[in-house]
Amino acid sequence: MKVLTHAVILDDHRLFADSFSLLLKKECDIDLIQSFDASKDFFSFLRTFGRNKIYVFLDYYFPNENGLSLLTEIRRINELAKVIVVTGAIAPSVIKSILQYRPDGMLSKACQIHHVMDCITAINQGRNYIIPEFKQMKPIDIENTQIFTARELEMLKYFSQGHSVAETASLTFLSPHTVVAHRRKMMAKTNCQTITQMLRYARDHELI
């Protein structure tokens, strides 16, 4: 008897998510597919789904969140979930930050359907999959970029929206002292003297 396969797409761009859903069902033989544009609705579904195998196609950019923090939460809720990051980013700093979280798969939104099929095949065989264009990045491009944690990227997002240290602390459930410590560490990483310089660095490297 055929075992049903399930997949979820979490992406705040509805047109992409719905189109990708149709593509997965038609070309990748996935039986049940749902798409969400808000993490709250997605996590409500994931908790009711139980600890069963499921493919999660996760975007990197969200208006008020970062995909890497969502990846960690997905694995906490369901250790059998296979998380595939699907991103439109091409900056080495973004790719390096994503890879440190070791997703089961990593695809570009510009990739071809056979890459998606290769990714699913690799995961089913117990292997991780990274799209060739990311693998082929020049080593120097990767080595010379700084790694940011999901928490740091979350703070960068809030700082870029004009939130103060106190407001960022409240939004991230941290103390102002901890936020300042994180900010100081990020500025040291990027060799920046001011928050404005750091945010410029983050935008130039597509981190936010």
Rank of each mutant, 00 (worst) to 15 (best):
R14Y: 09
R14H: 14
L15K: 13
L15H: 10
F16P: 00
F16M: 09
A17V: 10
A17S: 13
A17L: 00
A17D: 06
D18F: 09
D18E: 02
D18L: 14
D18A: 05
S19Q: 13
S19H: 15
S19I: 12
F20W: 01
F20E: 05
F20T: 10
S21V: 00
S21L: 04
S21R: 00
S21Q: 13
L22D: 07
L22K: 14
L22H: 10
L23P: 01
L24D: 01
L24G: 01
L24N: 03
K25T: 10
K25P: 04
K25D: 04
K25S: 14
K26M: 10
E27M: 08
E27L: 01
E27A: 03
E27S: 11
C28Y: 10
C28L: 07
C28K: 07
C28R: 10
D29G: 12
D29V: 04
D29Y: 09
D29H: 06
I30E: 03
I30W: 06
D31P: 04
D31H: 09
D31T: 12
D31E: 13
D31I: 05
L32D: 09
L32K: 15
L32Q: 04
I33Q: 06
I33E: 07
Q34V: 05
Q34E: 05
S35R: 12
S35Y: 15
S35L: 05
S35C: 08
S35N: 06
F36E: 02
F36N: 14
D37S: 13
D37H: 10
D37E: 08
D37C: 14
D37P: 05
A38P: 06
A38D: 11
S39L: 07
S39M: 02
S39G: 15
S39T: 12
S39R: 12
D41W: 06
D41S: 15
F42D: 08
F43N: 07
F43P: 11
F43G: 02
S44V: 01
S44C: 07
S44I: 00
S44E: 11
S44W: 00
F45Y: 14
L46Y: 02
L46F: 06
L46V: 00
L46K: 05
R47E: 12
R47Q: 13
R47I: 08
T48I: 09
T48N: 09
F49G: 02
F49N: 07
F49E: 01
G50P: 15
G50C: 09
R51D: 04
N52M: 04
N52Y: 08
K53V: 12
K53S: 15
I54T: 02
I54H: 01
I54F: 04
I54E: 00
I54Q: 03
Y55T: 09
Y55V: 04
Y55P: 09
Y55Q: 08
Y55M: 06
V56D: 04
V56F: 06
F57D: 07
F57V: 09
F57L: 06
F57N: 04
F57P: 03
L58C: 11
L58F: 08
